[in-house]
């Protein structure tokens, strides 16, 4: 979203580069309308200190906001992979369709929360590492016997070196 001049969101003044960085971040959640993006920038920066106005710091704030929001809805601890998986779930559920207000409201509709939880990608369960030992096959047992008689060093065993 182009922000050609400093925008004022109610009481929050946002630098263009900060707004652009926040827009990019929230576009990753599927938000595309200017209204939603502006509201989300306000949501992130409202009450933020001076550093919040710098793009990197603003995005860090946005990440933290979204992590907290997702952790609350998904019933998980913030941090770790909550943001990546939660964002995927949010996009897969087309959460942006419900508008920026969804994130800013105190509570999330039960139906959507259920959908979101069910959409969190679980590509694989926890691993239980084990080793499949390579089997040994003596390909020519008679030849092996002869080799042993004649003292040859290596058996004809079909296994990796």
């Amino acid at each position: 979203m182009q922000t050609s001049r400093p925008s004022t969101l109610e009481s929050v003044w946002v630098r263009p580069e900060t707004r652009a960085a926040l827009d990019t971040f929230f576009q990753g959640f599927g938000f595309t309308s200017d209204e939603d993006l502006a509201a989300l920038a306000f949501w992130v920066l409202a009450g933020a200190c001076e550093q919040g106005e710098r793009p990197q710091a603003a995005v860090a704030l946005a990440r933290a906001r979204m992590e907290t929001w997702l952790a609350g809805v998904l019933g998980r601890e913030a941090g770790g992979s909550v943001l990546a998986r939660g964002r995927a779930a949010f996009v897969l559920c087309d959460g942006a369709r419900l508008g920026a207000g969804l994130l800013m409201r105190g509570s999330v509709p039960d139906n959507f929360a259920r959908k979101l939880r069910a959409a969190v990608p679980v590509p694989a369960p926890a691993q239980v590492p084990t080793t499949m030992p390579e089997q040994q096959l003596v390909l020519w047992p008679f030849g092996d016997l002869l080799r042993r008689w004649f003292g040859a060093a290596r058996a004809d065993v079909s296994t990796s070196p």
Partner: peptide, 12 residues
């Protein structure tokens, strides 16, 4: 956006 978010989640 869907492919991007999903791919990054699976990578992670």
């Amino acid at each position: 956006a869907k492919a991007h978010a999903l791919h990054l989640a699976l990578l992670e």
